[in-house]
């Protein structure tokens, strides 16, 4: 059977270079969480819930089905790239204002999907928002307030 092989990896997370050594099959999600990017959540590990959504070169996708080594050299953005305590991103403000979360476990993924949507479609209609977040499951809210919040940012309300 032999020893497992490890590979060097270097990628940029939220603008910061991160390096490491990983096994071939390691997912980007596990790599990020092992490197303390715990804001990226593991809900299912099979691409079915969207909790682990990050932006890879600007596109929102599930990090649990992304091979870490394939993210080599790429720009990854997690929730922590959005805003800070003193300066929330408009989406973050809207999520708080509209109570677009309860337990908050889907929120990190939901916000990144919303970010990717607004980057390409700054004033989305409700139906486009619902389509965009359809891979991000939320078990708490019934989605309405999430759609309200994203729509409000699209309107320029926040």
């Amino acid at each position: 059977m032999g020893e497992k092989e490890y590979y060097n990896i270097k990628l940029t997370v939220n603008g910061k270079v991160v390096t490491g050594s990983v096994r071939a099959e390691i997912s980007l999600l596990d790599f990020l969480r092992d490197n303390n990017y715990i804001e990226v959540k593991k809900g299912c590990d099979k691409g079915d819930c969207g909790a682990c959504t990050v932006l890879i070169d600007g596109k929102a996708t599930v990090s649990c089905l992304t091979s870490a080594l394939q993210a080599q050299g790429k720009n990854i953005y997690t929730l922590k790239s959005l805003g800070s305590w003193d300066k929330l991103h408009p989406l973050q403000k809207a999520f708080v204002k509209y109570e677009a979360l309860q337990c908050g476990f889907c929120t990190p993924g939901m916000l990144m999907t919303a970010k990717a949507l607004l980057d390409t479609n700054p004033h989305p209609a409700r139906e486009s928002i619902k389509e965009a977040i359809s891979g991000n499951l939320c078990r708490c809210t019934g989605y309405r307030k999430i759609v309200d919040a994203i729509e409000a940012v699209g309107r320029g309300e926040l």
Partner: peptide, 9 residues
Amino acid sequence: FANPLIRNK
């Protein structure tokens, strides 16, 4: 096809 997150992949 699936959803936008998977379609990106």
